[in-house]
Design a protein around this nucleic acid. Structure first.
Length: 104
DNA sequence: ACTATGACTCCCA
DNA sequence: GTGGGAGCCATAG
């Protein structure tokens, strides 16, 4: 169930996601590292999944190997949005892995 | 406190 | 390239 009152962890994750500029992408691991929890990649995904706003560029977050990962709105939609922002996707993999940000 | 779940990641066959 | 297994973390019930 989505928490009515998000925890600090979630706020931190969303905040980092919001810092991702358009046309670029980041990975769960990088975000996790940005919040000082490099092993919390999974928890990061969870936070985004519970994201009640859906206004954060959570669709710019991909897996470490460049795969799309998942998306609450549908992985398909995520790919479409990324493509619209200029992110190249091939065979379900993001080709912009070298555009990863240095968050934090 | 414990268990179950999940938008993850790494290692090995 | 594909698939299975184990590890790690936060949240919900």
């Amino acid at each position: 169930m989505r928490s009515k009152n998000p925890t600090k962890f979630q706020l931190a994750v969303w905040a980092v996601c919001a810092k991702i500029p358009k046309g670029k992408v980041s990975t769960y691991t990088k975000i996790a590292r940005a919040i000082d929890k490099p092993k919390a990649a999974r928890a990061v995904g969870n936070a985004l999944n519970k994201n009640p706003h859906a206004s954060v560029p959570c669709h710019r977050v991909i897996r470490s190997d460049g795969s799309i990962g998942g998306f609450a709105h549908g992985t398909k939609k995520k790919i479409e949005m990324l493509r619209k922002e200029g992110v190249k996707i091939k065979n379900g993999k993001t080709l912009t892995t070298h555009l990863l940000l240095n968050l934090k």
